[in-house]
Simulated scan of single mutants.
Amino acid sequence: MSLLLDKRELKKAAKELTLAKLNDVLHTLQSVLAERQGELEAINEIERFAREKGFTLEQLGYKQVQDIIPTEDSAVVNDAKRPVKPKFKTLNKSSQYFYVEDGKLQLLRTHTMKKGLQARGIEVVPANKVDKKLAKDIDALLAEATEQAVCNYNSKVAVWNAWAAVNGGEVLEPR
């Protein structure tokens, strides 16, 4: 009986100990949060003061972070990093795979999707084994995929050509 009581007491002590540690962590996080909030207020005050005095943030040493897709301008600025030379891959009807989802024929975009679809119980078939009533959609799906591939290729060619113009590389023709 005493062993059972000791076990209960140990569990109770473990819960209290965990609660005490969690409270310590919570207090630490709150102090760090308060400190960061103070830093943020100081940074905002410095930025406001700099703007009032006519300085730009770049002049003061701040680096602006932009979440944009690389464009021709950024490729020219970042000439030290060589972009990947684009290669256009044609879509051959005979080598494409399709699947039916929600009663509509879909083109398998990547072969890594294949295992996920099969795990969900969706059958992936080559173009020659597509059901005849859905086969009429194959050409439209391939045309849409080709259009998207051309658009992606052309955007990569623009970045490549901008880099090539600065660094003396081969200039590619868009499609």
Rank of each mutant, 00 (worst) to 15 (best):
V77Q: 12
V100N: 01
M113W: 11
D73Y: 10
Q106T: 10
L57N: 04
I68S: 11
V125R: 08
A50T: 00
I68K: 12
L108S: 01
Y62P: 04
T110I: 06
I69F: 14
R120T: 05
K85V: 06
S94P: 00
F55H: 11
L105A: 02
K115E: 08
D79V: 11
T112M: 13
I122P: 01
K115H: 03
G121T: 00
Q64V: 14
R120L: 08
Y99S: 00
N92V: 09
T110Q: 13
D73I: 13
A119K: 06
A119N: 06
P126K: 09
T56G: 05
P70K: 01
F88Y: 09
I122A: 02
S74I: 08
S74Y: 04
P70G: 03
Q96S: 15
D79C: 13
F98L: 02
L108D: 05
D102C: 08
F55K: 08
P83L: 00
L117W: 00
V100I: 12
I68M: 10
L57S: 03
D67Q: 13
V77M: 11
G121Y: 03
Y97D: 10
T56N: 07
K85H: 07
R109W: 10
L60N: 03
G103S: 08
K87G: 10
N78P: 02
Q106E: 14
Y99A: 04
Q66Y: 13
E72G: 05
E101T: 08
N78S: 07
Q59M: 07
Q106R: 15
K53C: 02
G121E: 00
P70Y: 00
A119M: 00
T112F: 15
D73W: 08
P86C: 02
V76K: 12
Q66R: 15
D67I: 14
R120P: 07
R82S: 09
P126G: 01
V77W: 09
Q96P: 03
K114H: 01
S95G: 14
V77C: 04
I122E: 05
V124G: 05
T112P: 00
L105G: 07
Q106P: 00
L91T: 02
T56S: 10
L108T: 05
Q59E: 13
Q118S: 03
K93R: 15
Q66F: 15
Q66T: 15
V100C: 07
G116S: 10
L107T: 04
S95N: 15
L108F: 02
A80Q: 14
D73L: 13
R82D: 01
K85P: 07
V124K: 01
Q66H: 12
Y99I: 01
V100W: 04
Y62V: 07
S74C: 02
I68H: 09
V84L: 12
E123C: 03
V84A: 12
V84I: 12
K115M: 08
A50F: 02
V100H: 05
